[in-house]
Amino acid sequence: MRLISAFFAGGLFGVGLLISGMTDTRKVIGWLDIFGDWDPTLAFVMGGAIIPMAIAWQIAARRSAPALGGTFPTPPEPRLGRNLVLGSVLFGAGWGLAGLCPGPAIASITWGGTGGAVFLVAMILGMVAAPSVKLSLARGQTA
């Protein structure tokens, strides 16, 4: 059951990414292009996604456990470390450069062509390398 619901959640997420324009790098770059020909579509995507999810958090707060058992995720410590900021800056730089973030990069792999495949492989390599990058950042901080 857990696998089936995860499968359909992934599917719904993916179709939502396609319909909303998140898998179209032109729309994403257009949204980030505040000083150029700005495209406001992604603000509607974020708004449309945040509203149902905010309701879901409220429902979760009133329930003891998820429908298929286990526990609800605990809120992370409200710590704003250097990793959060630096990681987000690196991510944003790449997002603005290619117009793809992790979800759409995976969702569009069947039609994304060579460019999509190159992006996905590089993203996976970056993800594999991330723990050692993080470690060397921590070392640099203490040295």
Binding site: F91, A98, L100, C101, P102, L120, A122, A130
Partner: peptide, 14 residues
Amino acid sequence: ALAGLLVGVGTRIA
């Protein structure tokens, strides 16, 4: 490829 690397490293660090 550079963008993919940045997105991969950045999202995991953040």
